[in-house]
Nucleic acid binder design. Structure first.
Lengths: 354, 354
DNA sequence: AAACGACTTGCAAACGTTTTCCTGTTGGCT
DNA sequence: AGCCAACAGGAAAACGTTTGCAAGTCGTTT
């Protein structure tokens, strides 16, 4: 692969001149400029961005840490982030933690040593352990030689004056969904929640409870049952609820996978949905549109979250490091009403995204 | 962020010694080694991999080019590739073409200038244009300074003596699926194929035809109809076939999205599946398990494709560039029988992957 | 006792850029 | 015609590593 010296030799100029032509950083006479440009074309030269990175202390790479690419949530986030990244001239580095906290800090360290320009941390819905937080905060204080690696978290905001975040008001979304069921006249609503301690799970429970309180409808705390994200767990919990003759007329699920499981349980036990039990999911994954009955769900602007994080990252990188002021961007959810709560709800296959 | 000079100063040694301690490349006395190690810990030093990359002409980054992360096929490929990459110490760079050939060559050029160690090209199911092929072949001839960037294509093999590939025998998979339907006694099988020219689409058609020939069953060429990947197109084609009273008893679809559309069309027109029309999809995406009736589908080892490509990439990078001998790795498909062809077929929700 | 080998360490070059500093040339103004 | 400013272009330093080479210190062998 040709380097800048080859180009300089071919064009009969110094490497400084070649660099200037490429970057337009200083005037070069038309004569030389032409010679350089044709040399570049002949050799198919492109500047080595590793060397550029070393010189500029800047790699134009942004890392995004997720738990797994196979979770559709992250897939959309990545898409949003990548779309914006491409437009702004960054490359995206992706890494998965598979929910291991150790792995997370390891990845962050590795990205730091790779000199990525910034890190989008979309992985930890659980609380971080102290080490991660400490490490990340250290990143913010890297003022030496003007280097610093901004971190933006997704879905939740760290307790820090420095780390930006893009979040969703999950409490409100759960509140809205619960209110919606209450307005439909449902009075015995069960909630299949996320595993204990999951902070988003807790926000959903809070919204669920607040809606009941504000509507003056009592609820049975034993009807808030933790699932483990999976379809099968939703299936099991719902099946138990029904078989043990708990008196319920709606199930609000903390994700769509579990909601699909609940639908399957009702189907097997011949409980009509939505007539006897209405079901609401969370996340509006693709499958929500194609199960039968189709699933009413809360739609999280996943793509937009990734895009917003990347836009914000760019802003931060542009501004003076010393002036950085933390910002928390809150995005809202949408509500997709489908057949699992309203028999006549219609939706079109036409615009499905896979 | 501390650099190697800081460590050297702190430990009172030269930077060469620090480097040797880090890499274990040459014996260092215990005394100095200890001093260096504690300096490293105190400063939280990690070698800058940009500088290392420049020195070694090697970045330990592998790029993977796909059409879109939102397609579950690629998601699984990425997972397989990433799993192996992590184990072998590579980072993964991801880029999307969104099916634009121009974008593809642009991305390859950009990755070359970023000095990635290798490129996995999973994007182009359509034929590449001449430019891309030409460019990629140029990559293979980069012997100067021992640099060369191996390319591995996924799903199809280029007409080149140099470019490795990981492929699927789609013709055989389609043959098997069609034979299966014929053995079930179906005699009027329609095929919703991919857009013209799509090479994988053509392989599926070939398998479809070969099965008919070998079974001595004639088929109606007008029942091979191109869809455009989408659920909606599957829906439309199936709906037309039924409404126009074409005499069919099975539909073999070139992907699951279209198969789901076909199922929805049958549902709307009250054609029982599988009693009147059996439906087989391709790819075994997640949704195949949860539609009702669940969808019989050909399962492509997506994860394994990514993993195999990455393993092969590692092999190539280890071997002597001059000795490189192209290899084409062919993986086989599995067949998932479900309710859309056999009413009593059962599958469990338990092990669903999302 | 002299010489040689083994081992440890440091110096400096190199990787491919960008950019500062400097020199030489041109052109405009008086 | 003489000066100065403006400009074009080259040489060289710098970014953070790794590594070949030289030099120094031992210990061992003849």
């Amino acid at each position: 692969m040709a380097d800048i010296k080859d180009v300089a030799r071919q064009a009969g100029v110094s490497i400084s001149t070649v660099s200037r032509v490429i970057n337009g950083s200083k005037a070069v006479s038309d004569e030389l400029k032409m010679r350089v440009e044709s040399a570049i074309n002949e050799l198919g030269y492109r500047a080595n961005s590793v060397a550029q990175g070393l010189k500029a202390s800047k790699t134009n790479k942004i890392a995004i840490i997720i738990t797994s690419v196979s979770r559709t949530f992250f897939t959309s986030v990545i898409e949003g982030a990548n779309e914006v990244a491409e437009r702004l001239g960054y490359s995206l580095l992706i890494a998965e933690t598979h929910d291991k906290l150790d792995r997370e800090i390891e990845l962050i360290e590795s990205f730091v040593s790779q000199w990525v320009d910034g890190i989008i941390l979309a992985s930890s819905a659980y609380a971080h352990d102290a080490r991660t937080l400490q490490y990340i905060q250290r990143l913010e204080s890297l003022e030496k030689k003007g280097r610093r690696i901004p971190v933006i978290t997704l879905e939740y905001a760290m307790d820090s004056r420095y780390i930006d975040a893009v979040v969703i008001d999950y409490e409100k979304a759960a509140y809205d969904a619960t209110s919606y069921l209450l307005k439909l006249g449902r009075r015995k609503i069960a909630h299949i929640s996320l595993p204990k301690n999951h902070r988003i799970g807790r926000m959903r429970i809070a919204g669920f409870e607040r809606a009941h309180e504000e509507f003056g409808v009592p609820y049975d705390p034993s009807h808030i049952i933790a699932g483990d994200y999976t379809t099968y767990s939703g299936y099991q919990v719902a099946r138990n609820l029904i078989e043990e003759k708990h008196d319920i007329d709606a199930i609000f699920c903390a994700n769509d996978q579990m909601a699909v499981g609940a639908i399957k349980a009702c189907e097997e036990l011949e409980v009509p949905v939505p007539e006897q039990i209405a079901i609401v999911g969370n996340d509006d994954i693709f499958a929500a549109s194609i199960v039968s009955p189709s699933l009413t769900s809360i739609s999280v602007p996943k793509y937009e979250m990734g895009a917003a994080a990347m836009r914000r990252m760019h802003e931060i990188l542009q501004e003076d490091a010393a002036k950085h002021l933390r910002q928390i961007i809150t995005l809202s959810t949408a509500f997709e009403e489908r057949e699992s709560t309203l028999k006549t709800a219609k939706h079109s296959l036409k615009y499905l995204e896979w």
